[in-house]
Design a protein around this nucleic acid. Sequence first.
DNA 1: GAAAAATTTGAAATACTATAACATTTTCAG
DNA 2: CTGAAAATGTTATAGTATTTCAAATTTTTC
Lengths: 163, 163
Amino acid sequence: MVTRALPYRPHNHQACVNQALDDARHICQQHNARLTPTRQRVLELIWQSHRPLGAYDVLAQLAAEGQNAAPPTVYRALDFLQQHGLVHRIASLNAFVGCAHPGKPHTGMFLICHQCGNVLELSAPAVSEAVRAAADRESFRTDEVTLEISGVCPRCQAEPADD
Amino acid sequence: MVTRALPYRPHNHQACVNQALDDARHICQQHNARLTPTRQRVLELIWQSHRPLGAYDVLAQLAAEGQNAAPPTVYRALDFLQQHGLVHRIASLNAFVGCAHPGKPHTGMFLICHQCGNVLELSAPAVSEAVRAAADRESFRTDEVTLEISGVCPRCQAEPADD
DNA sequence: GAAAAATTTGAAATACTATAACATTTTCAG
DNA sequence: CTGAAAATGTTATAGTATTTCAAATTTTTC
């Protein structure tokens, strides 16, 4: 692997945000769903980095911007964004991260660096296939897969641990 | 698959409990760790079925037995049991389940039936290998894997949904 | 076996995460 | 415009987990 994945190297993050917003607009149009100002703002806040953000972090930022927001405001927006595949919830962190491949069907697999907090979302067909096969072997009907890997990203492996 | 996995068929569950307690005693001895009465009782409570139990469910049962218990009592016991590989936390449920293969190193993969609530813990080397390979491809060092599959177990697929 | 050290437990408070319930406002179709 | 549907505001509360400090118990050391 010569070039690292985005979260692991400096990049023009504004491009990530713009891409995410464009995708969101596009997808909502397709779904006949409304990307209201609050929903869009929450999506932007989630996308401010590649680190998952807690619902209450989002809430605090909304409140700081003068929007009168309560927990349901944020959870509703996050539910909406999840339903349309624009954000994912990371169960092991109780936090939310922007979807890296909105639109395309995929089983998310998340590499979570516990040093820097960044998350890389992978599509790993071989893993999905192996999971499906293992479930099949038990005659188990798979509905949803939660696959979250905690470890250390290449960038943090290289650096001395001054985090 | 001719015979189904344990959680999916009638079985002498007391044998599961006894096995779990024997294993626990054995492992704690090896680790020079103390399986105190509270810890043992919490383990028994967790093992009362193959369904994950919430920390506050455990707490309620302890309290009902007259033990003066507060949340930290339960969380401490659960932390201890997790550290020694005797129970697992199911992140997607915020609940705890007895480890099916204590002692043996394994990456847990959990098949969670959302009809009956039973959980089957599998060791699926092919899955672990695929996960490791996918992480390696990104030069990511894997520390912990959370792999939880929500779906319908064979038993509940067969029955009409009277759950 | 007694004192010191380490581990475990008790107890109260609090932090963090998420949802319920109902009123109000906004949007959209006809 | 008007009624229905969707989205938001608001208050309260449920559910999950940790912090903190004190007390008791067990283990170690002399």
